[in-house]
Design a protein around this nucleic acid. Structure first.
Ligand SMILES: NC(=O)c1ccc[n+]([C@@H]2O[C@H](COP(=O)([O-])OP(=O)(O)OC[C@H]3O[C@@H](n4cnc5c(N)ncnc54)[C@H](O)[C@@H]3O)[C@@H](O)[C@H]2O)c1
Ligand SMILES: NC(=O)c1ccc[n+]([C@@H]2O[C@H](COP(=O)([O-])OP(=O)(O)OC[C@H]3O[C@@H](n4cnc5c(N)ncnc54)[C@H](O)[C@@H]3O)[C@@H](O)[C@H]2O)c1
Lengths: 230, 230
DNA sequence: TACCTTTCGTGAAGTCGTTCACAACGAAAG
DNA sequence: CTTTCGTTGTGAACGACTTCACGAAAGGTA
């Protein structure tokens, strides 16, 4: 990337860039923090304590303070953290500088659920296009999102800033879908199928395996229940 | 528990009990191992190497060997592990000694997807009953599972060996649903709503937060992609 | 102003899971 | 029978994240 241009002065350490290395788990927590912070702000709250954020993710106050220290956000003793500023700081880190969106492949039961959910809760990451092979789905608009034929995938993604793909097709089709998404420029995949996708090293894959999660719950329901998880 | 009865001799160390303390992550891997082992056995394979199992979960061969060592399953050099025996050993640990099942609460988009999925893939953990408040859903049988009214929850769970509950209702209703499930004897919850459920310490809760997962993917799609993950 | 309480910031210590490294072993080939 | 190759079992080293612990600072209160 070219990068440096625009309007930064010479010596000062800038403040926008994210030169920080953020652990995987911390990203999850930051995302959860932000979501609840927004609710709280909507309710009129303005300051938040570390133990409140900790309760959110099943963590300790110390962990929250450590997280916020890591992202360079500082509160003040006895007043806690300023909510809107913290939301902004987290967004600065998590959100892309330029608009980016998601493509959903596979508009079956699960795909429909996801479309419906994200159309309502409208996060920072809109689903810009959906794809399927079933003729009866192609061309329809579900929850505000157009469903295209798989043959149009490359063309559509060529016109949209899509960097993330959701794989919700039958397991046999998953690898092929992943390959095409990556070929079309996608750099991250949320994979719901019970297969490990083979992808180039620069592509990030997150597996959500509901069957495994359910077995895990069943197991710990029986044996010792270590309160928290995920 | 009464426990000891039936037919074990006096001194020998038994072999069925599961006195082992298993880390959370390992349970996930064991579940994934077993699923793929079954596929392989169905294809006629009989022996498996640690590196093959490792590839499944994005882990190293050493980790697999460590896992199997922990659960006390032993292979042999140059022949690897015996597949069916390993499946059996994992099942011995993961599955309940007595039949147990799952209750699904909230037959919306997501609930339907889950019902459909588990009715097909028929895991060791059947969904025995579904519940909802919407009149048009009550009494229907979807994917082989009867949908009951919420008012019937306690009664139905009184007659079924349900130890796990899936919470797929709107977020406002989640805590109330969790309370009732627990009251009715459920000991583990799979929670899809973006709230931290308050539960007694002996109940295990697993949160599946798709929105957070998606944000995580978006983040790592942009920054360094640490190939694997959970 | 002086004091007391609560919360933050952070170096240090602790915990837990993963990976390394190597000896032992089985099988197959020479 | 001996050699060679590949794989398992495992103690030990490693590394990463979490928690502890304590000093400092901000507000409230008398
Ligand atoms: N539903 C769940 O709760 C659940 C849970 C865990 C995993 N999964 C996995 O998620 C995936 C989807 O689940 P589902 O319940 O929505 O299944 P589904 O059968 O309802 O939907 C699959 C959709 O993908 C489409 N499709 C098929 N082949 C395609 C292709 N080559 N390209 C594009 N689209 C294609 C189909 O037309 C269909 O609309 C499956 O792999 C399933 O294993 C689902
Ligand atoms: N669909 C997704 O992809 C997705 C993703 C992340 C999280 N979630 C969460 O999962 C939950 C369900 O999502 P959904 O898309 O299925 O929503 P949905 O609105 O389609 O379904 C909710 C269902 O719950 C039923 N319900 C409402 N109140 C109830 C109550 N008190 N008791 C029992 N049933 C009740 C409704 O009748 C409906 O059938 C929501 O909390 C949502 O935030 C969904």
């Amino acid at each position: 990337m070219t990068g440096s241009a625009t309007s930064s002065s010479a010596v000062e350490p800038v403040r926008t860039a994210a030169p920080i290395e953020i652990p995987v788990r911390m990203v999850e927590r930051l995302s959860a923090y932000r979501r609840q912070l927004r609710r709280w702000v909507a309710e009129g709250r303005t300051r938040i304590y570390s133990h409140e954020l900790g309760a959110l993710v099943g963590g300790t106050p110390a962990q929250v303070r450590r997280d916020l220290m890591t992202i360079g956000y500082t509160g003040s003793p006895a007043r806690g953290y300023e909510a809107t500023g913290l939301i902004e700081r987290i967004s600065q880190l998590l959100d892309a500088p330029t608009r980016q969106g998601v493509a959903l492949v596979g508009v079956g039961y699960l795909g429909r659920a996801i479309l419906n959910y994200f159309s309502k809760t409208h996060p920072d990451l809109p689903i810009l296009a959906a794809f399927d092979v079933a003729p009866e789905k192609i061309g329809r608009v579900l929850d505000g999102c157009r469903c295209y034929a798989m043959t149009e995938l490359e063309a559509v993604l060529g016109t949209q800033p899509v960097t993330v793909g959701i794989v919700a097709v039958p397991v046999e089709a998953a690898q092929g879908v992943a390959d095409r998404l990556i070929q079309a420029g996608v750099r991250g995949l949320l994979n719901f199928t019970p297969t490990r996708l083979r992808v180039p090293p620069e592509v990030y894959v997150e597996d959500v395996d509901i069957a495994v999660s359910l077995e895990k719950v069943a197991f710990f329901a029986r044996h010792g229940a270590g309160s928290d998880e995920e």
